Structure formats: structure tokens, C-alpha cells
Computed example of a mutant assay.
Amino acid sequence: MAAFFFYNNRKPGKFNYKPVLYNPEEEERKKNLQDRIEKIKREMGVLPEEKKAEKKDFKVEFVSRTHHLKKRKENEGRANRSYFANNGLLIIILLLLFVLFYFWVLR
């Protein structure tokens, strides 16, 4: 009985949707016409010239848009020592804690 279902499978119905109100050629023609009208108006001086966007440095733009990185950059400018210069103090504190732990717990 199970073999019957494997050999007699029906194909699903196909979906053939054709849009009634959308014509891609006409949309493209309208867009080209609008672009030509704008270009001619710019040449005549009716519309101001289109300014091209200049490419910005990603790192500078990212830091300027991120609150905590902008704050860090401002603080680095004020102080002589950066955030990474505090590692020496951290190592000294860890060594001191290790020595205290060694003499207090392990002995």
C-alpha cells in the first residue's frame, strides 16, 4: 500500500502571476525621461548643481558616530597616558596579590 503513494504523486499547481498594472518598460522610460528633464534644468540653471558625495574614511566616521569611542578619543587627547599605559600598574598589583596569596595560603 505504501508503494502506491510513492509512484502516484501529483505535481503541485504552478503559479503564473502576471501583473496587470505594472509595465517595466514604461517605468524605465518614465525614469529616463525624468532624469533627462532634471539634467536639462540643471544645465539651464533652474535647479542647483547636484553635489556628489565624497568618500569618507570609515574609521574616522565610525569613531565620530560611536559615543564611547568618541569619548575615549577626547580623553586620550587630554591625558598624557593612554588607556593601555595602565597595564604596568595592573601587572604590579597582580604580582603583589600573588605574593600575598603565596605567603598567606600556600605556606
Rank of each mutant, 00 (worst) to 15 (best):
F84H: 12
E27D: 13
R29W: 12
R107N: 04
I92G: 05
K41G: 08
L106S: 10
A3G: 09
D35I: 09
E38A: 13
Q34S: 15
L89Q: 09
L90C: 04
E27Y: 05
M44C: 15
K14D: 02
N80L: 10
Y17N: 06
P24T: 01
E61N: 09
N16R: 11
K73W: 02
K18S: 08
K56T: 04
R78M: 08
E76A: 01
K55A: 15
A85W: 04
E27G: 02
F62P: 00
N16P: 00
R29V: 03
N86C: 03
N80R: 09
K71L: 09
F101I: 11
N23S: 10
F4R: 15
S64W: 01
F4H: 09
K56C: 03
W104C: 09
V20E: 15
N8P: 02
N75L: 14
A2D: 14
K11N: 11
L47G: 00
F15W: 04
W104V: 14
K39C: 08
S82E: 04
V46R: 00
L33S: 09
E25L: 08
R36I: 08
K59N: 07
N80H: 07
L33P: 00
A2P: 03
D57E: 13
G77K: 10
D57H: 03
P12S: 09
H67Y: 11
M44K: 15
N23V: 02
L33F: 10
L69D: 01
V105T: 08
R10S: 10
A85K: 04
R36G: 08
K18H: 09
K41H: 07
F58Q: 15
F101T: 03
F84I: 11
V99E: 06
K52R: 10
G77N: 04
K52L: 13
L90Q: 10
V60K: 12
N9A: 15
R65L: 13
R81F: 10
T66E: 02
Y17L: 05
F103I: 07
N80A: 07
M1A: 11
A53P: 04
E54K: 11
F6R: 12
N32L: 15
L94G: 12
I91W: 02
R81S: 09
L100P: 00
W104Q: 12
K59L: 14
G88W: 00
K18P: 00
K11Q: 13
K73Y: 01
N87W: 06
N80F: 01
F4T: 14
A3Y: 09
